[in-house]
């Protein structure tokens, strides 16, 4: 049994502009000790998906369908109180992009970590403090015994993020959800945090769901990756398999359009157009409005996740999964032309 099994999750937002189908039939699994990357552009629904796991969806949003099984237990059946008492913070922790908004400015870093420990374990306050210093040391805060008594604003951006990771680890969660935790950081600081994630996974053997828009980051911290597009998972595979052998046209373009330091502009081949609105997504395959190989049936059939390749863990939601989809080379200038103006990007970011 997987540690986490998400099946056909649908989370909608009931807004005055219509129903935003932010997450619309998402399924994935996370094994014990595994790190899954959830990748996609803004509006893909990745952030809403992980917030759904934690029961953090607020009005006008609601989980309308689907199941989230954590260690065999159905989370969608739990009340807010039960979630807070039994799940959030002690089984599953979440790390956000903006550490400053998660840390309370009027308490010292130590007080905040100690509080989590005391609340969730049977450690005494003295033991909690010792443990907090240990955690700060683990996440690479220099002089933890001194710096534990400082306030969040006395920490640099990278250190705040480390402090938040320490807090997430405070009661030995089995699953950590990280939602773009390094997006706002400079690359040299990000590099340190990514290394830290690796170390933590090794030391604490936690499972992880890591949400990011950056394939390079996934490569550093994740074993497996699920690519999301407009509320659905379109492809899922072990990272290297996905990169070397992408089956879904969206994944292929995503890989081709990533700006990396070892390629020049000529090698860049962006996807044309913009993601349609999640209020009125295209029928059938949601990628069809931007897909260069779409055909008649794509507008009628919703492709399920097919097993593909030799790797049995590789699945893709494209009707042409088995005909060796080759992307045509779009003319360079065509590809820079945009679709009609879109409705505002969705709730995701």
């Amino acid at each position: 049994m997987s540690l986490l099994e998400v099946e056909d999750l649908q989370t909608y937002f009931f807004t005055s502009d219509g129903i935003v189908r932010a997450v619309d039939g998402v399924s994935f699994e996370v094994e014990t000790g595994e790190s899954l990357g959830l990748v996609g552009e803004s509006g893909a629904g990745k952030s809403v998906a992980v917030k759904s796991l934690m029961g953090l969806i607020r009005e006008p949003g609601r989980i309308v369908n689907g199941s989230i099984k954590y260690d065999g237990q159905e989370l969608t059946d739990l009340s807010e109180q039960e979630l807070r008492r039994d799940i959030r913070g002690n089984e599953i922790s979440i790390i956000f992009q903006d550490a400053m908004s998660a840390l309370n400015p009027v308490f010292t870093v130590g007080e905040q970590i100690e509080e989590v420990i005391v609340e969730n374990t049977d450690r005494s306050p003295t033991e909690a403090r010792e443990r907090a210093i240990e955690l700060l040391d683990d996440v690479g805060i220099p002089d933890p015994a001194q710096r534990i008594d400082e306030y969040p604003h006395q920490y640099s951006g990278g250190m705040q993020q480390r402090a938040m990771i320490a807090m997430a680890l405070a009661c030995d969660p089995r699953l950590i959800i990280a939602d773009e935790p390094t997006t706002a950081l400079d690359v040299t600081i990000q590099a340190g945090i990514l290394e830290l994630f690796d170390e933590i996974q090794e030391k604490y053997e936690t499972s992880m769901v890591y949400v990011t828009h950056d394939l390079g980051v996934v490569r550093e911290v994740c074993d497996r990756v699920a690519v999301m597009y407009l509320g659905r998972v379109v492809e899922s595979a072990p990272y290297e398999e996905l990169y070397r052998n992408p089956k879904h046209p969206y994944t292929q373009s995503l890989i081709n359009s990533v700006v990396t330091p070892d390629e020049t502009l000529d090698e860049l081949d962006p996807i044309g157009g913009t993601m349609p609105s999640a209020v009125s997504p295209p029928s059938g395959c949601r990628f069809r409005t931007r897909c260069s190989v779409e055909f008649g049936e794509c507008s009628q059939l919703t492709p399920p996740l097919y097993d593909v390749g030799d790797e049995e863990t590789h699945t893709t939601a494209c009707l042409r999964y088995d005909d060796g989809v080759e992307r045509e080379e779009p003319a360079l200038h065509e590809s820079t032309t945009s679709e009609p103006a879109v409705v505002e990007e969705q709730t995701d970011d």
Partner: peptide
């Protein structure tokens, strides 16, 4: 977004 970045740079 990454794909949009590429479009703008082009």
């Amino acid at each position: 977004d990454v794909s949009v970045q590429a479009q703008i740079l082009n």
